[in-house]
Amino acid sequence: MTRTIGLDVDGEAVRIEIDVRTTLLDALRERLGHTAPKKGCDHGQCGSCTVILDGRRHLTCLSLAVAHDGATVTTSRGLAALDEAPDAGPPADTAEPSSPSLPGADPADLPLHRVQQAFLDHDGLQCGYCTPGQVCSAVGALAELAAGQPSHVTDDLSGRPELSDAEIRERMSGNLCRCGAYAGIVAAVRQAAGS
């Protein structure tokens, strides 16, 4: 069975006809040429396929594309445009924010998102395969932290979580790095949170 769906990917509106079995990851990579999100495990276990989907960080390997007809997707390639709205993030207990779409420019020509710059500044990568997922995840993590959402390591559920390395590690735990660049990743997220 096939279906035609519309997506907004990194600021560009696209329509494609897909087999309903196609995952969002395969639609992006194989059908639309958006190879920024990576296929690491294809089973939800590594985070390398993370994008910002309708305002939240989200895996794309365990989602059927057809179930996300009309969605707005920001991959690491289009991330810089989100930096213009650094407050974008789900507030503590209400609806998610709308994610701003890119201007007409080619995302590759846009400046780096501050999270991406921080990854470069702190060597938060080695081979780089996990990095597109890491940076999207970090953008989501910072928005969630800014919105006061607790994590597993937050001691006081009633207060606002404070930024600490333990919080960063926990909030980034959905993204594995086979090169073990974790020390640099934590430093990068800390820098991006502070700037």
């Binding site: 597993h152 559920l157 009633s158 993204n175």
Partner: peptide, 21 residues
């Protein structure tokens, strides 16, 4: 506030991305 066990159980599950899904 009222059901910390529930918040904590959810936060201990899967990953942030998966919890959004």
């Amino acid at each position: 506030e009222r059901y910390p066990v529930l918040a904590r159980a959810l936060l201990a599950g899967a990953s942030p991305q998966i919890r959004h899904q």
